[in-house]
Design a protein around this nucleic acid. Structure first.
Lengths: 121, 121
DNA sequence: GGCAGACATAGATGGATGTCAACATAGACG
DNA sequence: CGTCTATGTTGACATCCATCTATGTCTGCC
């Protein structure tokens, strides 16, 4: 009870960060519910490319205008995907003048990789 | 053109295995389309737990009957989720007598972790 | 102030997805 | 054979989700 209440207040990234690798012990239902949104955020080709574009960009951050240009999708659609990635804690958001820059939170990707890979972090 | 045709014939796991980490270079649209199904297969709390249950089980395999018992879901629903995981190449399937055993394909998880984590495989 | 550009939000819509009940299949065993 | 048990398949249904158009908000600038 108290354990699950604590989990409810954690972001997906935080839940991932404090979970043992999938291959080490069975994932509890509560943790699975907490982690799934993070994986789901990555489970889209457009968002995979967005993360990759940002992560591989100079200083691991990119302006929305550049990201828009990389896709044949409407600006609101890209904005929606960026919001999804930001909401789960994979991307940070900074406004500089008129432009908005999204940046990678590297530890989020690393923690998720450790959870999936399991082979010692 | 020829590159994308090759990718079309790869399974999600194979596509992941031959892709550079997300943080290293921008993911192409074709590769993103190939990888997304694998991530999507993991982007569900029930399937996360199924993978974890199988992966952390003795010999990294488990009988469907045990898996059914771990959930408050109908048997066809579990069967459906196992099929999704098997179709993308995360689980192997073996029939022994009346029972069906699903087993982890460890390299699939490792490759996915390497793609996401990026810190050298 | 007012306009223009960058980005977010709202609402609508077609398609994907998780779940179940019902049925099918396939061995084991009497 | 017939039945029981384990598992997969089908079809239906409700919900979720990716995308679009239209509109709102904020900022810089003339």
């Amino acid at each position: 009870m108290s354990k699950s209440r604590i989990l409810i207040d954690l972001t997906p990234v935080q839940t991932v960060a404090c979970s043992a690798p999938l291959t080490q012990e069975p994932l509890s239902a509560e943790r699975a519910e907490g982690i799934a949104p993070l994986v789901k955020a990555l489970a889209d080709p457009v968002r995979l490319r967005l993360v990759s574009l940002v992560a591989s960009h100079q200083d691991r951050e990119a302006c929305v205008c550049e990201l828009n240009d990389a896709f044949d999708l409407s600006q609101p659609t890209i904005s929606h995907h960026l919001k999804v990635l930001h909401d789960v804690g994979l991307l940070d958001r900074t406004k500089r003048g008129v432009w908005v820059y999204y940046s990678i939170k590297p530890e989020a990707l690393a923690d998720l990789a450790a959870l999936i890979g399991g082979v010692e972090a």
